[in-house]
Design a protein around this nucleic acid. Structure first.
Lengths: 246, 246
DNA sequence: AGGTAATGGTCGGAGTTCATACCAATTTTC
DNA sequence: GAAAATTGGTATGAACTCCGACCATTACCT
């Protein structure tokens, strides 16, 4: 579906996209698994009830239940019945490892690189917007909490999850649901990519410094600075990934 | 575990989105109608064959045909059988008019405003990226053609379509399919909004000047300038719309 | 003129998804 | 301890979607 690079930039080719990529079932599995892996629902937390989730995802409960069964079978969650029961996250965050950067579809690779490009636009935009908004104390507390979680995380897997949450939190601060959607999607892909490469302490330290600078810029309302820092942050990650993934 | 649903900045609330908004049939109608109204397929042009469209939209031919039937019934297209036949666009571009800014769902209004926010991030990003890329002569020709079409358009309806195409063309120049998707979506919403307000010659002239500046910046590879101009362009349109739509 | 190819039009069975109702387990509440 | 409430578990039939094969029409090509 993706035109190979160099193909003519024909509008009609570029604009028409799959009207519906997956079946509802797959879409649910994908979204829930992503949500869990990104740490939106951390280890031990309880997901919303089936009925609520079904409504939220705009899917029948039957379909949602099939998705849940898949997650259960995959070991991401466990389920208890009865009032006060529900579905709890049991997945331990996966530790990044340097395996399997090979075995990549050309299409997949193209998708990944495209995500990096898109990210470099969307996330700096979100950062600038967050800096522009005047944030209420609650919002600032969320930002600080997310930032502290990243800074405190010791094990690489925890750091990875906290990092995702940090970036999602910034997007959520803007109050734009479309932005949140875009960042979620971008972070999901990014998460996949980062699992395929080795993690270096130096990279983490560098990243943490950028996070701190970013938070400062957002709190001060310096949107140009916030954007610039986030751009640099994205560029650094992208360079790392492009280098290691080809 | 789940914070109260009043917090608009809650991650778990913000991240979970409908896994699938429409049925395949509706999605097809929507996308095709949008594509036509945005002028990707101008009046008199022939759409791709049903088999090709079905594959492109990742939908069975039966479903696509139902969508086509809806478009036919709505008067957007006409269909002829046999080799050399196909489906041609018959919709005359609608003339913007000052009606029906009333009768807006609160949700709808929220969606519209959100689109303006998202646009202000995505389109300037696309412009900057297009300026950064070194464009081959074919690409430059497409850019110029799209620009010339906007500048030449006399009737408001034609201008509106040409404007959409111009913005889509810039996104397409970047070669990023995710960006094209984002801009398409944003332009579709924008199109709806602009149909609900009166069009002023002064606005059009102003917009045209910005287009010219933008094209110049892109051709020169001045990405900062390209972004700044596009930001201003978005801000101006947004201000107009926010003012007239409340 | 006749054959070929490309197009839309039609049909039927298989798989998904949906909506609804009801059952079962467990906690909370009184 | 009993009732109520909330949660997951199950079942059924309707509607939608998909796939594949085949038919009908028309233009192009030899």
């Amino acid at each position: 579906m993706l035109p190979s690079p160099g193909t003519s930039h024909d509008l009609t080719e570029a604009v028409l996209r799959p009207a519906r990529g997956y079946h509802a079932f797959e879409a649910c599995v994908e979204q829930l698994a992503t949500t869990i892996r990104l740490g939106v629902y951390p280890l031990g937390s309880t997901l919303p009830s089936e009925r609520e989730l079904a409504e939220r995802l705009n899917v029948s409960r039957s379909t949602l239940r099939e998705a849940m069964a898949a997650l259960r079978e995959a070991g991401l969650v466990e389920t208890r019945r009865g009032r006060g029961g529900g579905t709890v996250v049991t997945l331990k965050p996966r530790t990044p490892s340097a395996r399997a950067a090979a075995r990549l579809t050309e299409e997949r690779r193209h998708e990944w690189l495209d995500s990096l490009v898109f990210r470099r636009i969307v996330e700096p935009g979100a950062a600038a917007l967050a800096a522009r908004a005047d944030l209420d104390p609650t919002a600032l507390a969320q930002l600080d909490a997310a930032h502290a979680a990243v800074a405190k995380a010791r094990r690489p897997a925890d750091h990875r999850q906290a990092d995702s949450r940090f970036h999602l939190t910034i997007a959520a601060l803007t109050g734009s649901s479309r932005l949140v959607e875009a960042v979620t999607s971008v972070q999901a892909t990014l998460h996949e990519m980062l699992l395929a490469i080795p993690v270096l302490d130096a990279n983490i330290a560098h990243s943490d410094r950028q996070h701190a600078t970013l938070v400062r810029a957002i709190r001060r309302g310096n949107h140009d600075r916030a954007r610039a820092v986030m751009e640099e942050h994205c560029d650094d990650t992208a360079a790392l990934l492009r280098g290691l993934l080809g």
